[in-house]
């Protein structure tokens, strides 16, 4: 077993280091709120890498990544369908691997890079190939599960650029679609992988 070189030499990190008001970041509305936050809930200023940018943000010890993204970084493309690992609407990529953002702590992604649906388009606004394929196939119905479906597909195609329809089903299985748009999403996957034109 090798030691992860990215890990710091610090013996351990205690999650309750108080960060003063001066260190607050994030949208204005939350700044205002944070100042009157009771002593019980203590946030800590951390840096996380989201969509290629380093974001400094005050985070509670028990705060989920979905909460940080949606309420502190204004990245509302990450949806909360259940907040319990039962639907996949909150799927994001952490180091290119699918994760339920509702079921992981923001404090656990400090050394890793997070990709949300907002991070897929290129700088000039061009759609990611998966997004374009999902658009062409009209993947979504209500769209609430769609960011998760797109990200699950992006992750799949990174590790398996030409999946079979069955492999695609397995890879997207952790993304529930209440509208039942499964067939259209699979068509999207096949199109994105160049197997459907």
């Amino acid at each position: 077993m090798s030691v992860n070189p990215r890990l710091t030499r610090r013996r351990f990190i205690k999650g309750v280091i108080y960060s003063g008001a001066a260190a607050m970041s994030g949208a204005g509305v939350y700044l205002a709120n944070a100042q009157s936050r009771p002593a019980a809930a203590v946030e800590r200023l951390i840096s996380i890498n989201v969509n290629g940018r380093t974001r400094r943000v005050d985070v509670l010890p028990q705060e989920t990544l979905a909460h940080t993204l949606r309420y502190k970084l204004e990245l509302t493309g990450t949806k909360l369908g259940c907040n319990r690992g039962e639907c996949g609407a909150c799927t994001v990529l952490v180091d290119d691997v699918t994760h339920y953002a509702c079921s992981m702590l923001t404090h656990s992604v400090k050394q890793r890079s997070v990709t949300t649906i907002e991070g897929l388009q290129s700088a000039d606004g061009q759609l990611h190939v998966v997004q374009q394929a999902f658009l062409d196939e009209l993947g979504p119905q209500c769209g609430f599960c769609t960011p998760g479906q797109v990200l699950a597909t992006v992750a799949l195609l990174k590790s398996n650029p030409r999946p079979t329809r069955d492999q695609a089903r397995d890879a997207l299985a952790g993304n529930l679609c209440r509208c039942g748009a499964y067939d259209h999403y699979l068509n999207g996957v096949m199109r994105a992988s160049g197997q459907l034109s």
Binding site: G77, T78, E118, L120, Q131, L135, G143, T146
Partner: peptide
């Protein structure tokens, strides 16, 4: 609305 749904820009 489809574009917003696949980019996360659609607002609920």
């Amino acid at each position: 609305c489809a574009q917003g749904k696949i980019t996360g820009a659609a607002r609920y």
